[in-house]
């Protein structure tokens, strides 16, 4: 589900790209659809739940903080280009950029779903999670910087649409790579399930404590670990090649106001903020996963089993009672 969605939702820039899966007929010069039929009646808007309202309010607040930081960052960069550098400028730019990176990562996006999925699917440790978070952020920034500086150097047509097209292409490539990685993950996971089913069915292990003899084909844990290293490097590379639009916009702005060095420093600070937020999420995911798996191993898991059996029995009783009441 996640991998198909990822491949399908390489996010377009509305100012340059059509929406994904847009099957509407092309518009004529006067803006009317060339073979438009009577438009369907609009669906009634769905209303969010209480949790949804809280989430929406929180996202709105964070977006507002980002808006303010965006303005402050730009104002400071522009002031530097006009008045020159001073310690206050450095502090302002790096501080705003760092905070902006943290907030930007908290809001949905930046392939956090991939980070979470990987931490769930693979045998990631806390140190792994921290490294993953920072590497994700670093790759985002590096790819954005590369695209901006290559484009500025070589391309003389519209920068905005060119960068948007390059970003879109990298997202497609990334999605294909993730699909391939996901297939490999699924095959490995399927092999592990089959391995357990052929072995002792009551033998239950958490991801962190599989003894050597139970690794696939009896291979050593060291061998499995080195394969895991390759997997997470592949995940970081395939996801990190997507440039962050904010980073490209920040660098373009810095180039346009002749504050390139400060712009690069701002990107580094922004990446640090991004990395801290992503690393925190990775660590949280690993923590939650290990606790949930440990919980299911214990008596609580058996209680849950008994509870489900009881609920099932009660449902049968209820159906019988209601049916009898209808008949009599």
């Amino acid at each position: 589900m996640l991998l198909v969605y990822t491949a399908a939702s390489a996010q377009p820039n509305p100012f340059f790209d059509r929406p994904p899966g847009d099957l509407q007929p092309p518009l004529s010069d006067d803006g009317r659809a060339e073979d438009a039929e009577q438009p369907p009646a609009p669906a009634q808007p769905r209303r969010p739940s209480a949790v949804g309202r809280i989430t929406a309010d929180a996202a709105r607040a964070i977006a507002g903080w980002q808006r303010d930081l965006n303005h402050r960052l730009a104002t400071t960069l522009r002031a530097v280009s006009q008045d020159g550098l001073n310690p206050g400028s450095w502090f302002g730019v790096l501080g705003f950029a760092f905070l902006f990176g943290v907030l930007h990562a908290i809001l949905p996006g930046h392939r956090k779903s991939v980070l979470v999925s990987y931490c769930i699917a693979d045998r990631a440790r806390v140190g792994h999670g921290i490294a993953l978070g920072f590497l994700f952020a670093l790759m985002h920034a590096i790819s954005a910087a590369l695209i901006v500086f290559v484009t500025v150097s070589l391309v003389e047509i519209s920068l905005g649409s060119t960068i948007a097209r390059i970003s879109h292409a990298t997202q497609v490539v990334s999605s294909l790579l993730l699909l391939a990685i996901g297939v490999v993950f699924c095959v490995l996971a399927g092999r592990e399930i089959l391995h357990h089913r052929r072995g002792n069915g009551a033998c239950c292990h958490t991801a962190a404590r599989i003894p050597e003899a139970h690794t696939p084909q009896g291979s050593s844990l060291e061998g499995a670990t080195s394969g895991g290293n390759m997997r997470w490097i592949a995940v970081v590379l395939s996801t990190g090649i997507i440039p962050c639009p904010i980073t490209t916009a920040l660098l373009l702005f810095a180039v346009s106001v002749n504050a390139v060095a400060l712009g690069i420093a701002a990107v580094v600070a922004l990446s640090a903020g991004l990395g801290i937020a992503l690393a925190g999420l990775a660590v949280l995911t690993i923590f939650v996963k290990e606790r949930v798996l440990a919980l299911l191993e214990k008596r609580t898991g058996h209680l849950l089993h008994a509870g489900v059996e009881l609920a099932g029995s009660f449902m049968i009783l209820l159906v019988g009672a209601v049916t009898l009441m209808v008949l009599v």
Binding site: M1, L2, Y5, S9, Q11, N13, A63, Q66, H104, L107, P108, G109, H110, K112, S113, V116, S117, I120, A121, A189, I193, C204, A207, P245, I246, A249, T285, V288, K289, V292, L293, L296
Partner: peptide, 22 residues
């Protein structure tokens, strides 16, 4: 067990898949 937990957490993560403003 593990895939079920993975699916549950994936669904939670999926809920936050929306993009953020740029």
């Amino acid at each position: 067990k593990k895939p079920a937990v993975a699916v549950a957490l994936l669904v939670a993560a999926f809920a936050s898949l929306a993009a953020h403003p740029h």
